[in-house]
Computed example of a mutant assay.
Amino acid sequence: MTDDQKDKIIELRKIGIGYRSIAAALDLSRDKVRNFCKAQGLDGYGAELKKKKEDDIYSKEFCKNCGTRINEKPTGGRPKVYCSQKCKRKWEETHPTMYQCVLLLWNRI
């Protein structure tokens, strides 16, 4: 791997491009790109490496329904959006999701 390729990998990872896409663009194997990124501290999902906006940070710290601060310990899972199940249910009641219903009618001969 050349120095130019290393610089390009770092540049592409910082804008959120995945290992496979980088490997295909630079004609390298995905494992080489992944191992280099791990060594540089650029591992994880590409979307997480994008610079976070203040709105994203705000939305992860406060409940989507009531606005109270969520005390969340860092875990490997999905970040919390609501402070409790009660708030989640209340949000879902006031903001119903509309689904399209597709009906299939079969004509019998």
Rank of each mutant, 00 (worst) to 15 (best):
I17Q: 09
K73R: 10
K38H: 11
C63T: 02
F62Y: 15
L28G: 05
Y82H: 11
E61L: 15
G67M: 12
H95M: 08
I57F: 02
C101T: 15
H95R: 13
G16L: 05
D55S: 11
K50V: 09
I22Q: 09
L26I: 06
R78Y: 08
G44A: 02
G77N: 04
C66A: 04
E11V: 05
K8N: 10
T75S: 07
P74W: 06
R89W: 01
E72P: 03
G16V: 04
P74K: 14
T97D: 10
Y82S: 00
N35T: 11
Q100L: 14
I10W: 04
C87G: 05
D4W: 00
W91D: 14
T75R: 07
K52Y: 02
G67T: 11
C66R: 08
R108A: 13
F62S: 03
L42N: 06
P79V: 00
N35F: 10
Q100I: 11
T68D: 09
D43Q: 11
P96K: 09
V81I: 15
Y99H: 15
K64G: 01
D27F: 11
S29P: 00
N35P: 03
I70L: 14
K80G: 01
Q85W: 08
W106G: 13
K64P: 05
I70W: 13
I22T: 07
K32W: 06
K6Q: 12
P79G: 07
R78Q: 06
K52Q: 11
Y19H: 13
M98D: 11
N35E: 13
K90Y: 01
D55A: 07
E11I: 02
K90V: 08
S29D: 09
G67I: 09
I57M: 08
E11Q: 15
